[in-house]
Design a protein around this nucleic acid. Sequence first.
DNA 1: CTGAAAGCGCTTACAG
DNA 2: CTGAAAGCGCTTACAG
Lengths: 335, 335
Amino acid sequence: MAATTIKDVAREAKVSVASVSRAMNGGSGVTAETSLRIRQAAERLQYIPHAAARMLITRRTRTVGALLPDLYGEFFSELIRGIDLAARAHGLHLLVSSSHDGVEEAAAAVRSMQGRVDGLLILSERVDAAFLRANLPRDLPVVLLNSPVRNSGHAVLNVDNRGGAFAMVRHLIQAGHRNIAFISGPAGNFDSRQRLKGYRAAMARYAPDAPLTVLDGDFIEESGYRAGLQLAAMTPRPTAVFAANDMMAVGCLAAFKEAGLRVPEDIAVAGFDDIPIARYVNPPLTTVRVRIVDLGRSALEQLAELLQRPEPSSASAQTLGCEIVVRDSCGASVT
Amino acid sequence: MAATTIKDVAREAKVSVASVSRAMNGGSGVTAETSLRIRQAAERLQYIPHAAARMLITRRTRTVGALLPDLYGEFFSELIRGIDLAARAHGLHLLVSSSHDGVEEAAAAVRSMQGRVDGLLILSERVDAAFLRANLPRDLPVVLLNSPVRNSGHAVLNVDNRGGAFAMVRHLIQAGHRNIAFISGPAGNFDSRQRLKGYRAAMARYAPDAPLTVLDGDFIEESGYRAGLQLAAMTPRPTAVFAANDMMAVGCLAAFKEAGLRVPEDIAVAGFDDIPIARYVNPPLTTVRVRIVDLGRSALEQLAELLQRPEPSSASAQTLGCEIVVRDSCGASVT
DNA sequence: CTGAAAGCGCTTACAG
DNA sequence: CTGAAAGCGCTTACAG
């Protein structure tokens, strides 16, 4: 105990606590000499202002919260890394609450963060406008990541799933493919729907007469494997398949190997995400890369902005671009 | 603004703030009826106690901090997941500060967490006894993860790197190998040193006459590749190689493929970590799995324990076991 | 059981 | 520039 307080410093520097406070907060309102003397005293006493007392009086925590669902490895860590880096740059602390799969759990987490954070970053399929209205004070700055929510009054930052998928399909078409199949993610999934839209749009635009083939998947490797077996058995067989994520593309590769199909000679394969495994499978996977660190960083930047200027009433909606990574699974790197 | 405070609830329930406080904190010292009336009033007003005020008076934050270095994907996310799950179970919030590579950065992070956390989880190669002494108040509960620090007065929780490596080498020997090479991690790395010790111990015990071959690596794939090329050129060539981590084992596989060596027929390969890629390479990699979620969970549990009983002066040091995962890269599953 | 009051450590008008 | 004082929202002895 016996942590040194502002009083101790005041005594040591022979000034009032008010002056200590002013000196510790930028020093405006005190002479340079006084300020120096105070800061030296503080140094001597190893004084660290009590965070809670400061929060209580200033009504600010200098902390932001991040609410995340049960995410898979790489995405999660990259996202946090981006958020963390940006938070540190802004002098903000980061309170994390992850691994939520239920709405109730998420609601409890959000509520328990009340008063401990100045703003919130939320990434969760389950969080919709109604959830936000029910569980958040109207005036808490919030940035939604990868969310379909619109006009909730909150800022939204999305990955350009549609654009990434569009670009990938265009790439495949330019490489000479026309019969291109798509393996979707889980039915209601927002990312998957956007990627499907990108596929459809690119096909409509660049190969309007080509057949559309959409197989159901669920983002799990196994579902990609099953879809791969189906594809292998089709006549005419698509010459390329674009899976809504890498794991399903990996499953596809396994199915094709089993079916005796060569990749990319007999059929080209592309994925989405660029997970680390993508470059280690055989052949290495052509895919769409999402700059996840940037997603986290941008989200935090936006939130930090909100903390300073409480939203000019028009909630922004931004989109973060993706890039195509061409590897062997689609044949030569044709652009 | 206008957040409802304890006063509002007191007025609404027609009691003193003292009674409200008691009712909100378990209700001892108030009749059941009063307590109920108060809690209903609180509900009506959507009262949430102000965290900072509570912290200020109770001297507890109900928050733990996690200081993490710049970790790679899977390990990081699994660790946080484990910590987060356990923290939630204990009603503790989690303040995260990650991606530190410098000592100075880590020190600043630790200091800035002062007063915002009741305890700290620290995973960092750079953090030694001196660091802890210089940057932490003597009485702050701390659990060190995977740390060589001893007798610092802090609890330590380590992965059984030595035991895992020992078991793997024993497995290889039992499978008939005698000339087994080891590829080390970075020179000063604690994990690597422990794994090397395990290799040496198992060789000494089960194949005391067999040659010891240790190649330098640095945990990066590339270094495993180089070591693989060296191994391929050796005479006599080891019949098995145990890399101090999976990434180097993956590099080894690439080198062997290039050198025309078949795995496991010509040479067996084993790694350490069981990263997701391990099961996707060709052939799938035999490796040592670290239950990272459990590591995080245990660390938090230990910290939570410390928060309740401030360390009976004897800092504990625990070790978390590993398990061998047998896949094709070492041939048939001989146990 | 219940309430009045002190006090946690800080910041910030308000005087001087 | 400097300080005395009020007050942030809570909890907890202390009386009754």
